[in-house]
Amino acid sequence: MLVRLILCSALLGLGGAAAAENCGHLRSAFYEYGAFYYKAADGSWTGIDKDVVDEVARRMGCVIEASTDSRVRIWAGLVAGSLDMSVSAMATPDREKFARVVPYIAEHNYVLLHKDVSDSVRSMDDFLADPSIKIGVIKSFRHGKVYDAWLDRLRAQGRVYEAPDYPALLRLFKVGRVQAMMALSVGWYPLVKHQQVAGSYRVMDWSPQKEALVGGLILSRQRVDAAMAARFSQTIRAMREDGTLKRIFERHLDPELAARLINF
């Protein structure tokens, strides 16, 4: 009887280990952007995206190998199948062809205007009417139907600069190469505490429908099958229901903003 119990326990243990290893070894790329992913005071990487992926890996028994890259190269890796997953991505018809999105955040875009821009610029139409004002965006970012249509009109006038990443976009803004920039809440929130840019801009909310941009983990269809994607979705749902997702957001944002961003 004792031998049988030992054998049964061993088999159960092996079965549990196999289940935990189903997730396997995955490669995830992160990109630097505000509270999503940034360097802490000690030089280590931290942020909402990292904490979400770390917790998902812990719960699913995955080994998720992390790298940091530009958003453009991340998209190229997902399309080519050389990358398994990435983070805080919005679903679009084109992206759905090669990847699945597992939501964990509902964001909203804002326009940050430099303090030197005239106070008379109070709307998208005001901005369009002043040819001296240029705006910066991150290449490959999507901003929702309203803002993307507006940006296309500005592109036709040669008034949009596309930066490879968020730090480059901030540099363009600080040196005056652009007088405005597109930013999500998690992008401009840390700037409030940033001495070099504090008080140098004002935040404008020009999307009339307050269009929500739902983003999350983006999983390569070539590398992550539908069953595994469903497990990711179940794990994120459980993290939201037990309060883990909210606690992760509150590590990097104030409680009010954290609560709003997980309300999707």
Rank of each mutant, 00 (worst) to 15 (best):
D84K: 03
A212E: 07
I248W: 04
L253P: 04
N22T: 13
R27M: 05
A99Q: 04
V121F: 04
D54W: 05
E55L: 13
M204V: 08
Q195D: 09
R142V: 15
G176R: 03
V224E: 01
M228Q: 15
G199W: 06
V111S: 05
N263R: 12
D125A: 14
K246C: 04
L253K: 02
R58D: 04
L11G: 09
A99L: 07
L213A: 12
Y161M: 15
R240I: 08
L169E: 01
V87A: 00
Y201R: 09
L83M: 06
P208F: 09
L184G: 01
D69K: 07
A212W: 03
A40L: 13
T92Y: 06
A80K: 09
F264V: 05
W188L: 07
I48D: 00
K139H: 10
G199M: 11
A229E: 03
V224T: 09
V214F: 01
V121P: 00
Q157D: 10
F249V: 07
V160S: 04
K97Y: 02
V160T: 05
S44N: 11
Y201M: 14
M85A: 12
K246S: 12
A20N: 01
A106G: 14
P167R: 05
G16W: 14
D116M: 06
A258Y: 01
A168F: 02
Q196R: 12
Q222V: 06
K139C: 01
P167G: 10
M85G: 05
D54F: 09
L219E: 00
A76S: 10
P164M: 10
Y147G: 08
S118P: 05
A226Q: 13
L169A: 06
R4F: 15
N22C: 11
A76D: 13
Q196E: 14
Q209K: 14
G216K: 01
N109D: 10
Y147C: 07
K134S: 14
V186C: 02
Y38L: 14
T68Y: 13
P167D: 09
I105S: 10
E250D: 08
L253I: 12
H114K: 10
M228Y: 06
F249N: 02
T92Q: 09
R59H: 05
Y166Q: 10
M181V: 15
D94R: 11
P255S: 12
R231A: 12
Q222L: 11
S140T: 13
A99P: 06
A17D: 06
S28I: 14
K50H: 05
A129D: 14
A80D: 13
E250G: 07
D125M: 12
A230K: 12
L151G: 07
A29L: 09
V56S: 02
V121N: 01
R95P: 02
L11M: 12
